[in-house]
Design a protein around this nucleic acid. Sequence first.
DNA 1: CCAGGGGTCCTTTTT
DNA 2: GGACCCCTGG
Length: 744
Amino acid sequence: MTPRNASSHLLSLNPEQRRAVQATEGPVLILAGAGSGKTKTLAHRIAHLIRVRRVEPQRIVAVTFTNRAAAEMRERVGAFAGPEARPVVLSTFHSLGARILREFAPRLGLPPRFAIYAGADQLAALRTACGEVSIGGDRFDYKRVLRQISDWKSRSVDPANATREVVAGITRGTRSDEYAVLAADAYLKYEEVLRASGAVDFDDLLLLPVRLLDQDEEVRRALWKRWHYIMIDEYQDTNGVQLQLARLLAGQRRNLCVVGDDDQSIYAFRGADVGNILEFERHFPGATVITLEQNYRSTQRILEAANAVIRGNPHRHPKSLRTENGIGAPIDFAEYEDEATEAEEVAKEIQYRRMQYKLAWGDFAVLYRTNTQGRVFEEVLRERNIPYRVLGGDSFFDRKEVADALAYLRAVANGKDEIALRRIINYPTRGIGRTTVLKVAERATERKAGFAAMLAQISEGDVGAAAARSIGHFLAFLGHARQALHAAEAESGRRPVLDALPPIARWAEHFIRETGIEEDIRRDPRNGKSAPFRVDNLRDLVGTIARYERGRWEEAAELMASTLAEASLAPPAGWDPPTLHGALARLALADPDEDRDDKRQEDASVALLTLHSAKGLEFPDVFLVGLEEGILPHARSIEAAADAGGTALVADPLAEERRLLYVGITRAQRRLMLSLCKSRGRSSQPTQPSRYLAEIPPDLLNVRTAQEERSPEESATLRQNFFAEMKAMLEPPEQAPRPPGIEE
DNA sequence: CCAGGGGTCCTTTTT
DNA sequence: GGACCCCTGG
């Protein structure tokens, strides 16, 4: 269904939104309150540019933070502008960075098949780096150092300047601890390990493109010629480097349109600077500012509660959300004995409401502050046979067996990848122990060679005959795999494979089997019953590679259709044929849920997620749990605030925690329930209610007593429900409980 | 020098 | 449910 023209669609916008859509030249700031139709407005704007202002779609770049947001935007744009909008570049910040890096890698001295380190790999790289200079020693908190390094990189501070920053902090007598000194030292070494491994980390995906654009006139011109309109979603979450990138990409045209809500800034911990949105007009003089204040999502009561909470924060863009929705149900509030009781009662309440109001499992979401809080809910929901899905959290790619297989693939794709090599060099065990690896690393440092290069030239004199032979076998194994891969890649680039497993995936399947990971999983008694599941994960990994390969060819088909018409506008790099490196890069940047969650799951299961991963989502019925001091606000934030003392920090940790609650409340469309546990943890420590609860006007709340009494109808429904669930449990185990004749 | 077992600790938020 | 450390036996 392609719309006849864009203007007919503009009719569904309110005057503010229409202004936002049509203010097309120069910098634009759209301050969009929660639930104000942000994505819709941006999608309209893109459609307007294409259909009314006749901008070529490939000149438009829309940047989001998550793959999910990019996918949602793609869907909306497609609905408003039709298939001709396909060439619009819709990408996350990090994917866009990776794309720029891939194209211009040689100019940075980066190998074209660079590895991307995230999470555990970054940590491993830091450990390696610290091992080399033997800084740290016992009880060295690598994660903390990594956070510090990441903070520097997100502000575009290089190691030399980091050292200067630390030293200056010390001489000024400010609170710069010895960790910062060590971290500055480690930072330099860490960068060296990355470069020697032909790798970049997540921060580099933004930082290196900025450096490139900043220093290379040709690159700047090339990109300015290519992209004319830049749009950024969730602008309140951008950090210093992202601001630079936005500025550089927009260039002199300054067609930069950003959308965001300072009240929803919840990523200061990873370098987001709410000042970016608060001072947009200073950064981009002459900017048009539009405020979207109508909320289309929530009931009046929910919105009032949200407004009451956020009102407590200083330094906000003035904004008052209004809604034309009804007053809605009261907000429920309950106190439970402990986590288990809370989870039980929430589960019961979900079952009850689902029956009573004929809702789907997918209408419910349980929101919590920390990932670990989700576990109790998982247990209880599983026990009750309530289908659920955990959003965010630990990724598929963090699974040990998946990470192991990926390390093998990476070691083949990029022979310099030290972190991948170290991970698999003795897994499954092949007689290359810790001491041997240590010796190799030592020799490498001595002779100023990379770890991988040293491996290739290690001699019996270095590590002994047995170990040397094992290393030889190991490298030969990878070498053979690499040759087979080249053949597979050549085949994959030649023509699409439609039926069977595509060549690279087929190669990967074979190679992973040869690694012996599967045997080891089966053999290891610790895996117990999870062994078959783990082996399945390896198959899934091959499946994602297959999907990538097919995806490349689908894109090729689309691109050819558009490049024939506009050959001169084709991107200079053209279409990239499928490669293992491409598959790995995609996997590194992928949304872990995206590939595996099919759309069906969405309406058929209760969502469990942290407040952070809830941003941008909405649910009819929301449970906000664990509203206690120490959880929300989190103890670490309370500490951090105390540490900061009176210092007028822009990023006030407690203000951010309040925004987190605000985000949580505004996810709810129809109903909201708040709860807390009176005691928590192994030792059943008594808790205090969250300080923010007192800020919600009591007349909005329906306070429930602990062992609440239900009305006769409610009890009847629960009984009925109980029997329905029992019946469902007796059905084949694969089948999710599906009460008769209630849904659909 | 290597493999494997068994204890202990802890857990903010994420691209 | 891990990640990590130390110990033991080959």
